[in-house]
Amino acid sequence: MSGKSKLRRYRLILEYDGTNFSGWQKQVNVRTVQGDVLKGAARVFGEVPMDLQGCGRTDSGVHALEYVAHLEVAADMGPHEVARKLNETLPKDIAVRSVEAAGARFHARHNCIARSYVYQIRTEKSAFGKRYDWWVQADLDLPAMQHAGSLMTGMHDFAAFAEKKELKKSTRVLIHNVEVFKEKEILKIRVVGSHFLWHMVRRMVGIMVEVGCHRLTEEDVQNMLEDHSNALPSHHTAPSAGLFFEKAFYDSEGLAELLKE
Rank of each mutant, 00 (worst) to 15 (best):
M1Q: 11
M1W: 10
K4E: 13
S5G: 13
K6H: 13
L7R: 11
L7K: 13
R11Q: 12
R11G: 07
R11P: 04
Y16S: 05
Q27D: 00
N29L: 05
V30T: 09
R31P: 01
T32Q: 10
Q34S: 11
Q34K: 11
G35R: 12
L38G: 11
K39A: 14
K39V: 09
A41N: 08
A42E: 05
V44T: 13
V44L: 15
V48R: 09
M50K: 09
Q53V: 13
Q53N: 12
T58E: 03
D59T: 04
S60E: 03
G61P: 01
L65S: 05
Y67M: 08
V68C: 06
G78N: 14
H80R: 13
A83Y: 04
A83T: 09
L86N: 08
N87Y: 08
L90C: 14
L90K: 14
D93P: 09
A95R: 14
A101S: 15
G103L: 12
F106N: 09
R109A: 08
R109C: 07
C112L: 04
R115I: 01
T123S: 12
F128E: 09
V136W: 12
Q137S: 06
L142N: 08
P143V: 04
P143G: 06
H147L: 13
G149Q: 04
M152R: 05
G154A: 14
H156W: 07
A159P: 05
F161T: 05
E163V: 01
K164P: 10
E166V: 01
L167V: 09
S170T: 08
V173E: 00
V173T: 06
I175C: 13
V178S: 02
E179Y: 10
E183I: 11
E183R: 12
E183G: 04
E185R: 09
L187Q: 04
K188I: 00
I189E: 01
R190K: 12
V192M: 06
F196G: 03
H199E: 01
R202H: 05
R202V: 04
V205G: 06
G206Y: 07
M208L: 12
E210H: 02
V211I: 03
C213Y: 00
C213W: 00
R215Q: 03
L216A: 06
T217W: 02
N223G: 00
N223L: 08
M224N: 02
L225S: 05
D227R: 05
S229P: 02
H236M: 13
H236N: 07
F245V: 01
F245R: 03
K247H: 11
F249A: 12
F249R: 07
F249Y: 15
Y250R: 10
D251A: 15
E253F: 14
E253R: 14
L258R: 08
K260H: 11
E261G: 05
